[in-house]
Amino acid sequence: MNYTLQFGQVTGYLPYLAAGAWLSLQIAFLAFCGGMVLGLLGAMGRSFGGVWLDRLIRAYVVFFTNTPQLVQIYFIFFALPDVGILLSPYQAVLLGMTLNAGAYLTEIQRAGFLSVHRNEMEAAETLGMNLWQRVRYVVLPHIMRVLFPPLSNQYILMTLGTSMAAIFGVEELTGRAFNVNAETFRSIEVFSLTAGLYIVVTLIATLILGLVGRYWFRARMRLV
């Protein structure tokens, strides 16, 4: 073992990497919001829609949860241009992550929907609420308490999942780490610094989500 670690050569890139981490967080946040909307629609469709809608959504969920996100994005990025849909790497990654997240979040939110008592739904119906009002005023406040921990867990996993964007040339944290690696050839130093940044970023996210969950939704959550 004749290798001396030289962190001095890469610490100068710390602001550059931190800006990349910010982009990672943005991608994760956007994909998560998109996935939440898809998941909410999916869960509503599966719980209140007809048989065919249920089958369609189930096929979507099963397909997207049983294939790798990376290959899904490959397909979007390399195969869709054949039918005339040309996406930038950033758009392709975002679309892939949103679709993938939508599948997982459909399942999570459906499990929450199932936990709502039937009587409550009937009471809301009797009060003349339409489907959207029922979801907004009866289902959501009720299930957020149960739902928030798995949702925040999914968000952390998605933050880690954004590292995939590097493969398509998006300059988020891992992408920038590859860049710094190519410039300095201090691979182990760069990637351990990157790993440290990911740990810091996800720790902060866990802390914020834990606080929100505890005080807003009265969910039982670990803070760290």
Binding site: S163, A166, T174, A177, I188, S192, A195, Y198, I199
Partner: peptide, 24 residues
């Protein structure tokens, strides 16, 4: 345990990949 649950798999791969190079 806490650290490795918070590092993306791609970064772990790179760390191990280059780590073995360092260890010769």
């Amino acid at each position: 345990v806490e650290a490795f649950r918070r590092i993306p798999f791609l970064v772990t791969l790179m760390l191990v990949f280059f780590g073995f190079q360092v260890l010769n």
